[in-house]
């Protein structure tokens, strides 16, 4: 780890101001991705701006139509929330399988989606549920939020404050973990609800999370695993590594999607 300055602002406005003033500064929320990168000296931020002292950023609220998870809410809190379990059980279940217990107790939803690791779980939920990402300055639709590998629509001084998830009629997430890291090698989130029928795939795309148009079309006609029979995924935009070729990932997308639909009921 290299040396850096450390700030612990008490409000989002103050955090945004610090961030705007120093282009080399990084926000830190749970630190579950950033700390390992710092320890390996793969990043050299001038300062860390710790969001941990901002009480406004933590909490879950549920209305008749929407689950709102504030940016610094931990995965463990989402997983344990009776309200989330009631409203969007797939979201609570997804959160309960991120990393391990230590990661879930530190890692946060805002950190996860702002980082947009291509193997993270949350981006699939945000995209498939058609969520809205609220920031320190605006609201961004999920479809506009994830722009590429480790890239989002966030401006350099913009902070994720909350994510609004429209409550779906049906939803489920199934992942095939990377055998070594246990990150998603392929994760598919399917949802049917106010935002239509949506299928989001994480872990597999060379550019991060993506929607699967052919599957959405088929499921819109008939919400059943059988409807996905014969639908393939072009392999050219998928990841390849020592654990899974593009072709294997493409195949697993089909299997995980069918299982997700079956699980959603």
């Amino acid at each position: 780890m290299y040396e850096f300055a450390y700030h612990r602002p008490a409000s989002v406005a103050e955090a945004a101001k610090l961030l705007a003033a120093d282009p080399e500064a990084k926000l830190i929320s749970g630190g579950m991705s950033l700390i390992p990168v710092l320890k390996q000296r793969l990043a050299r931020p001038s300062a860390l701006i710790d969001l941990g002292a901002i009480p406004d950023l933590v909490g879950i609220s549920v209305t008749a139509t929407t689950v709102t998870v504030k940016g610094r809410t931990t995965h463990a809190a989402v997983a344990a929330s009776a309200e989330v379990r009631q409203a969007i059980p797939a979201l609570a279940e997804l959160a309960s399988h991120i990393g391990d217990a230590q990661v879930r107790n530190r890692g946060t939803i805002g950190g996860s989606i702002a980082h947009h690791d291509p193997t993270a779980d949350y981006p699939a939920a945000v995209l498939a549920l058609g969520a809205t990402v609220n920031t320190s300055r605006r609201s961004i639709a999920a479809d506009d939020f994830f722009t590429g590998l480790f890239a989002t629509a966030l401006e350099p001084d913009e902070i994720v404050t909350a994510v609004d998830f429209p409550i779906p009629e049906k939803a489920a997430y199934v992942k095939f973990p990377n055998p070594a890291s246990r990150y998603a090698m392929v994760g598919v989130f399917v949802a049917k609800g106010p935002m239509g029928v949506r299928v989001a795939v994480t872990g597999a795309g060379a550019n991060g999370v993506f929607r699967h148009a052919a599957m959405e079309e088929a499921l819109a006609k008939s919400w059943s695993p059988e409807a996905l029979e014969g639908i393939t995924t072009p392999a050219e935009h998928l990841n390849t590594d020592i654990h899974a070729s593009r072709e294997y990932r493409a195949h697993l997308i089909g299997v995980m999607a069918k299982r997700a639909v079956a699980k959603a009921g």
Partner: peptide, 17 residues
């Protein structure tokens, strides 16, 4: 796993199972 250039591809717990 080494690649042809002799770089260790399975060089961390993220890739060595």
């Amino acid at each position: 796993v080494y690649d042809e250039a002799g770089q260790l591809l399975s060089g961390s717990m993220m890739d060595y199972t």
